[in-house]
Nucleic acid binder design. Structure first.
Lengths: 128, 128
DNA sequence: TACGAACATGACGTTAACGTTATATTCTAA
DNA sequence: TTAGAATATAACGTTAACGTCATGTTCGTA
């Protein structure tokens, strides 16, 4: 009972069929197995994958970048060399993420100080 | 001597002329004053503005979002109502930023834990 | 003053990440 | 079994943020 077609998949994952097919076409999503009739069938994992992709997108990762990391959420590369390779990738992503975090923190501080400036101004000048 | 033309502007700000003209066209950058000849002239502030825009872009803000906040870096809205309006905008941006920070922090933690997992694996299985 | 460099303007091109028909086939329920 | 819903595939459309000519005018200097 864990096999579903694209209709149920997209409803549960909150994306459109076009999105699923697009992801399949760029190799971001393994294209579901097909029956003799041509229809694709998906599983729970596909739903989870789509949700994870959505999360990563919200972090500002491009689909290409996501393709680099999505696998390690659902599979384990076997062998020392593949694991080393993925580890390198992950470390780069971590460094990038730290940079983003710092910049975003700075931006937050800027916003905060602007907000306080406006608040002070309004507090002293408002009650005319 | 603080008046420059687009060539110097773009060199100092690290953007192309196309970018400057595009920003002018969408109202993100005030289009430089023009002489009788048709040439635009810019100032130090334009350089600073372009750099600030670039910073904000790196935070994942769209040019439209940047247009909402860029002014308050370089001007002060006068009057209580305008200031209230900008304050509201700023608070929304602050809330958005906090959400992004949280998501990004979570992603960082995920990455970190994956990295550690791989490191442990390699440490115990590497020296065959 | 002449000529190459700089500038202005217009228009078509590009990439990412899908949206939106259009058409054909398959599934499902009455 | 047959109409309507779901699916597959192809192809053209869309938005953001510019890139890349093409053409014409202006600037600066030899």
């Amino acid at each position: 009972m864990d096999r579903m077609r694209i209709g149920e998949l997209t409803e549960r994952a909150g994306v459109t069929q076009r999105t699923v097919r697009y992801y399949e076409s760029i190799g971001l999503l393994p294209s579901g197995e097909r029956e003799g009739n041509g229809h694709h069938y998906y599983t729970e994992e596909t739903v989870a994958r789509l949700r994870k992709i959505d999360q990563l997108k919200k972090l500002g990762l491009s689909l290409e970048e996501i393709r680099d990391v999505i696998e390690l959420y659902f599979t384990d590369p076997s062998g020392v060399q593949p694991k080393r390779k993925v580890l390198g990738l992950l470390r780069r992503h971590l460094a990038d993420t730290d940079k983003k975090l710092e910049a975003l923190g700075q931006f937050r501080a800027d916003l905060q100080s602007h907000i306080e400036r406006f608040e002070r101004w309004l507090e002293t000048n408002d009650r005319i």
